[in-house]
């Protein structure tokens, strides 16, 4: 298999985002058009995506775009919560493809532009519970992963899905910081039934617009019943395997982060309690809320884990 290369063409060669989006999405008014016309000024603000609502959405009030894009973990850009917002602007997200391989009959690539145009984009308003015991409500825009996977024709032996984040130290400074925060590339994995679950999506936007770079642009996984770090960002590779694939935080510290990492208030992180969480956006005096099993998605996903001891397989 050829080595996967990450082309970084000069800005002038990249398809203007306006051209990409015109195919399916629409510009929000003339002001949007004028700005969008100036192509690469990374003016994500103007890029409205055309979406349909989803029955899977919660009716809780979403966090503001400022909260979601200003407060996140994306260690490729530093370990501070504000670091991604500060440094992710450098990331070029076009062209962008995801290589799909492993135990499939029909390996290939997914082009981000096809994702945006060939699928119905759904608004999925999900709770997000970080392993650090804070939470948000994020109005993702995405596509059920199952509907994307299908066309690659899985082989019967495929039992897991492995994901990989971009490695590009020239744009992700912490990948080349002189000290190793995490082993790169960031990798994650799901069991096949988890990946095929209708709640599992590949997100391409939030708040009706394309993803801000710091939230994992241009395409990321969202698995709302697991701790946030399972929802791997800026994906460049998906492969199907028979064995449980490696997962970055699990490699980093297997005692603290299990492969499953389902939100579970009865299994504490060895160093802190997972029984309650702080909802971001409520200000200094926001009340703590009790964490729910599977982040409140138990009705939909608990059956995936029937018979499993979730205290051992945390």
């Amino acid at each position: 298999m050829p080595v996967y290369r990450y082309p970084a063409p000069p800005a002038s060669e990249i398809t203007p985002k306006s051209a990409i989006l015109n195919r399916r999405a629409f510009m929000a008014g003339a002001a949007g058009l004028a700005l969008g016309g100036s192509a690469l000024s990374s003016s994500a603000e103007v890029m409205k995506l055309k979406t349909v609502p989803s029955a899977f959405s919660t009716d809780e009030k979403p966090n503001s775009l400022d909260d979601i894009s200003g407060y996140c973990n994306f260690y490729e850009f530093g370990t501070g919560k504000g670091d991604p917002a500060e440094y992710a602007g450098k990331l070029t997200t076009r062209p962008w493809t995801i290589e799909v391989g492993g135990l499939v009959n029909n390996p290939g690539v997914i082009d981000i532009e096809d994702l945006l145009t060939d699928y119905t984009l759904e608004d999925r308003i999900y709770r997000l519970r970080c392993v650090e015991a804070w939470s948000m409500v994020v109005p993702w825009v995405g596509i059920p992963l199952a509907s994307i996977i299908d066309k690659f024709e899985l082989q019967g032996s495929a039992k897991y899905v492995a994901f990989e984040t971009l490695v590009r130290p020239s744009e992700m400074w912490a990948q080349d910081a002189g000290y190793r925060v995490l082993p790169w590339p960031y990798v994650e994995g799901l069991r096949l039934d988890e990946a095929m679950h209708p709640l599992t999506i590949l997100a391409v936007g939030l708040h009706g617009e394309v993803l801000p770079n710091q939230n994992g642009a241009p395409v990321r996984l969202v698995v709302p019943w697991k701790y946030g770090f399972k929802s791997i960002k800026s994906i460049v590779k998906i492969s199907f395997t028979e064995e449980e694939p490696p997962a970055t935080w699990n490699i980093q510290n297997p005692r603290e982060y299990g492969f499953y990492s389902n939100v579970n208030p009865t299994v504490d992180h060895p160093r802190w309690s997972q029984a309650s969480e702080r909802r971001i956006g409520g200000g200094l005096f926001a009340k703590r809320v009790e964490t729910q099993m599977f982040n409140g998605y138990g009705d939909q996903v608990a059956s995936l884990y029937d018979g499993m001891d979730l205290k051992k397989l945390f």
Binding site: N63, G70, Y71, G82, W134, R278, I280, A286
Partner: peptide, 15 residues
């Protein structure tokens, strides 16, 4: 800054 809501999304943590 904490009381005037000027510590970002998670003022408690910053404080």
């Amino acid at each position: 800054r904490a009381f005037s809501n000027a510590l970002g999304a998670d003022p408690l943590r910053v404080l």
